[in-house]
């Protein structure tokens, strides 16, 4: 029995390979074999060309911060002791964006366009979440060396 109280993702046939990849310590997203588009969230066909010839591509896990917010109000179960916490939108180097939390950084130090990389947070035995941390060596004042 897990003591993790926060909402867990609805895992469907369509999204299961994504969640499985995180369990395995990789970040995989759907890629169209016909036009090469990598897209998220998963869909039954390629939104670029309607091909159904899809595969799961391993991504670099690198990206940049597109935007972020800091919640000062706990709306959800499990967040009462966490406010203020950040929710960050990361643009992956391969194109798709992911909603996530940045870890290993003060909220005041988050910047648009800062480089980040994925870290895997096994929140329960069944579910691992993709979170992101600043690229080693990055600082809010100096950027990346």
């Amino acid at each position: 029995m897990s003591d993790y109280l926060k909402p867990l993702p609805p895992i469907t046939n369509l999204s299961k390979p994504y969640w499985d990849s995180l369990q395995e310590g990789a970040l995989r997203m759907p890629q169209c074999q016909a036009c090469s588009l990598i897209f998220y969230p998963p869909a039954p066909l390629c939104p670029g060309c309607w091909s159904r010839d899809l595969t799961w591509a391993a991504l670099s896990g690198r990206g940049t911060v597109n935007s972020w917010v800091v919640f000062h109000q706990a709306y959800l179960k499990g967040y009462d002791n966490e406010v203020p916490f950040n929710v960050t939108e990361v643009t992956l180097d391969e194109g798709p964006r992911l909603m996530t939390n940045l870890v290993g950084i003060d909220n005041d130090d988050i910047r648009v366009d800062m480089p980040v990389q994925v870290v895997f947070d096994a929140v329960t035995d069944e579910v691992t979440l993709a979170k992101f941390a600043p690229l080693p060596g990055w600082s809010p004042e100096g950027g990346t060396p």
Binding site: L8, P10, Y75, M99, L129
Partner: peptide, 23 residues
């Protein structure tokens, strides 16, 4: 909030909701 069924739908909510990350 706690009844965020829309955010929890496949692919997230229309306003950017994703309750898994507290959004």
């Amino acid at each position: 909030g706690g009844g965020d069924r829309e955010g929890a739908r496949e692919g997230g909510g229309g306003h950017g909701e994703d309750p898994v990350y507290g959004m």
